[in-house]
Amino acid sequence: MKTAQHRGNKQSLPSKPCQHCGLPMSWRKAWARNWEQVRYCSDACRRGRRSAQAPAADG
């Protein structure tokens, strides 16, 4: 009988913190080509970066 291999082990994948929220994000297949350039865990964090860095309008 052939044993099934568990394919859901993410502990061996590389991870790094999101630059906006600081939560750890693990490697995803969609990021395989540009893992070094990935900085944000989600679109929400990417949008949050823009609004957090925008200067306050004094008017």
Rank of each mutant, 00 (worst) to 15 (best):
S15R: 13
A57F: 08
W31V: 04
C41E: 02
A57E: 13
K16C: 02
G48Q: 12
A32I: 05
C18E: 01
K2V: 09
G8N: 13
L23N: 09
E36S: 13
M1W: 03
H20W: 07
S26Q: 06
A4H: 06
A57G: 05
C45E: 01
L23T: 10
Q53H: 12
Y40H: 04
P17D: 00
A52K: 10
R39M: 06
S51W: 06
R7D: 07
R28W: 08
S26L: 08
R28H: 14
M1C: 13
V38D: 01
R33A: 12
A44G: 02
A44H: 09
Q37W: 03
W27N: 04
A52G: 08
G22Q: 02
S51D: 15
A32S: 14
G8Y: 02
C18L: 03
C45D: 01
R47I: 08
C21G: 01
S26D: 07
P17G: 00
A30Y: 12
A56L: 10
A56H: 14
T3L: 10
A54P: 06
A4T: 14
C41Q: 04
A30V: 09
S42V: 00
H6I: 09
A30Q: 11
C41R: 00
A57N: 06
R28Y: 06
S51T: 14
Q5L: 11
H6Q: 11
R47G: 10
S42N: 04
G8L: 09
L23D: 07
A52M: 01
R49P: 02
A4I: 09
R39G: 00
Q53P: 02
A4Q: 13
T3K: 15
Y40I: 02
W35R: 04
A54L: 10
M25H: 03
M25D: 01
P14T: 05
C21D: 04
L13M: 05
A56I: 13
G59P: 10
R49K: 14
K16P: 01
C41F: 01
N9A: 08
R47H: 12
W31K: 04
A44S: 15
G8I: 00
R46S: 07
S51E: 15
M25G: 00
S26V: 13
K29Y: 09
A32C: 04
K29A: 04
M1F: 13
Y40L: 03
A30E: 12
D58N: 07
C45P: 02
A32T: 07
H20V: 02
